[in-house]
């Protein structure tokens, strides 16, 4: 018998006491999915929680976005960035005119090439206020996963209509991307560890600087 058949057989004989065959009828789940969490001001909470995780947060309007992005990169000491193919043209122009070297990812950069680049600028899919989390679904304006992982500074632009109250609303919004097979990366502050005497250290393997620009 194959391992698959044997394991499924063991599972079935372990469950002889279960007489109702429909899982939903057998175990009701008293939970309403996708509910928002009540909070006075979603955007303010988002900013507060991102900052609580030691991310740098800037707010701006659509008109000043491109220049704000370039300015933030400059003050973080970023000399070179990689931009995913779907990133808006005005950002690219503003970053270039600030004297920062811009790399594309077509053809894909090697790991070593990525490791030599200071930063990455991307859009986002969802922001979660209650937890200060930014979720990437790696659409063309966010790029493949390695781009937001290897460089040491990640500047992410979140639009105010992408920010939801809490995890349930976020999961509901992300369901479509997952069904389409997209990977997701949930980011809450810069990389961190508490493995040595539980003292929190920001910055282990992922980007050590997380810059968040909230637009609108």
């Amino acid at each position: 018998m194959s391992a698959r058949e044997e394991i499924l057989g063991r599972v079935r004989s372990a469950l002889v006491d279960v007489s109702v065959s429909d899982p939903v009828a057998d175990v009701p789940i008293d939970w309403e999915y996708g509910r928002p969490t009540a909070m006075p001001e979603v955007l303010a909470r988002f900013v507060e929680m991102c900052e609580d995780y030691k991310a740098t947060v800037a707010r701006c309007d659509e008109g000043s976005l491109a220049s704000r992005v370039a300015e933030l990169l400059g003050s973080a000491g970023v000399r070179s960035v990689v931009l995913p193919s779907g990133v808006e043209q005005p950002w690219r122009q503003a970053i270039e005119s600030a004297g920062i070297t811009v790399h594309g990812d077509e053809p894909p950069l090697s790991r070593a090439e990525l490791d030599a680049i200071d930063g990455v600028v991307t859009a986002a899919a969802v922001g979660i206020a209650e937890t200060g989390t930014i979720v990437l679904d790696h659409a063309p304006d966010q790029g493949r996963r390695a781009l937001t992982l290897v460089p040491d500074t990640h500047l992410v632009v979140v639009r105010s209509d992408q920010v939801v109250s809490d995890v349930p609303e976020a999961v509901a919004r992300l369901a479509g991307a997952v069904t389409d097979g997209a990977p997701l990366t949930w980011i809450s502050g810069p990389s961190a560890t508490s493995d040595i005497e539980l003292s929190r250290v920001e910055g282990v393997h992922g980007p050590r600087n997380l810059l968040v620009v909230l637009v609108g």
Partner: peptide, 20 residues
């Protein structure tokens, strides 16, 4: 960890062409 959210969570669904 007693955090509102851990720093990173990765979710992947089989193979994503051109990514990972």
């Amino acid at each position: 960890t007693g955090e509102r959210m851990n720093p990173y969570t990765s979710m992947w669904t089989g193979v994503t062409p051109g990514d990972g």
